[in-house]
Design a protein around this nucleic acid. Structure first.
Lengths: 187, 187
DNA sequence: CTAATAGTAAACCGATCTGTTTACATTGAG
DNA sequence: CTCAATGTAAACAGATCGGTTTACTATTAG
């Protein structure tokens, strides 16, 4: 097994564990046992637990931003409708019964108030995600795509967090009704 | 010192510690040392760490819902303007340099995926807060105050979480611009 | 004065935490 | 075959975790 594969294997296992059970609540021992590796190997690939989590945020971002364009293109042909479809897509992830929220937000909040690699990685994800929304808004031909993207993100984050906390996809309906109004006014 | 006062003293100290440093990251030993009490006393007033946190969420809710009406009444005379003022008030809390988000959301997310007293307490807060927004919307004379309240909450949570994560009050400006549009359309 | 209450300090429990280190086994390439 | 790389298992470190219990000391009310 190559180095890259081994590292990916650790990432895959750690990702699920932290996503499901939280960051402080999950020890590196659990990651080791779940992956089936020794502690030495874990610390060969990652300098610290926080560095591992930071890389997992990167993994989350890459995964999400690879799947999302495909899914929203499947749901709607035009860029304008794809913004709405993004909310449908995210809601569907909750509908499947798993109420995992945003990996980056959860990590950021749990390490809130400090300056760790976790903060840096999550901020980088937020920026990347914002740029993606901006490009969608620009493609949609809206007047002020950058301003619109900022508004869309607030709605999106609000829906995601409320859904995770209440374990219900309902907040997405409220968010979508506002989004429809917002998009109509921004043409 | 009476029982109630002692308990309040523990709550006050624990509240600051958990709010600033997180829940799993803060041990009961730190709460003891900070309050200046023994472990036995702590566990006389609270059955467990999770029960303590659940009570702290109640404390957060009571505090917030006692101050908010006063502040927004100071900022705006009419109920319609007070909804907007609620965002100004919350933004001002961030502007003061402290980027503490919503205590209930933070606690809920950190204990996400399990069923603890923490979940119950935070859900109760969300309900109370929603009812408060509903009453503001009803007083404002809006068409469908319950629906509007759900939309307002999504915007509010989105702004709070994004501000905490990015340590910037900027998301409130995006949220407020959407809110203005929303309120204008809901008259 | 007495008796109950409420408190402290500290030992103790078993477990866990992140991280390092030592000793040894496996493997693959030259 | 040999040697270096890569891995495992496990001890070790020092600290912390949530929680219980014991022994002792103030305080306070009757």
């Amino acid at each position: 097994m190559t180095k890259a594969l081994k590292k990916q294997e650790i990432i895959d296992h750690a990702y699920e564990l932290f996503y499901d059970h939280g960051f402080h609540a999950t020890g590196v021992d659990k990651v080791m046992a779940d992956t089936g590796i020794s502690k030495r190997t874990l610390y060969k690939y990652f300098a610290s637990k926080e560095d591992l989590i930071a890389e997992l945020i990167g993994h989350y971002g890459e995964t999400f931003l690879k799947i999302a364009p495909v899914e929203i293109a499947r749901l709607s042909p035009d860029p304008a409708g794809q913004i709405m479809a993004l909310f449908d897509f995210r809601k569907a992830m909750f509908d499947e019964g798993s109420f995992r929220g945003c990996f980056a937000i959860s990590a950021n909040l749990e390490y809130s108030g400090r300056d760790t690699p976790v903060q840096a990685a999550s901020l980088k994800f937020f920026e990347t995600f914002l740029n993606y929304i901006k490009s969608l808004c620009a493609d949609g031909g809206y007047k002020d795509p950058d301003k619109l993207a900022g508004q869309v993100i607030v709605l999106f984050n609000g829906a995601v967090v409320a859904s995770q906390a209440s374990r219900s996809p309902a907040p997405f309906d409220a968010a979508k009704s506002v989004l429809a109004m917002l998009l109509a006014a921004a043409k």
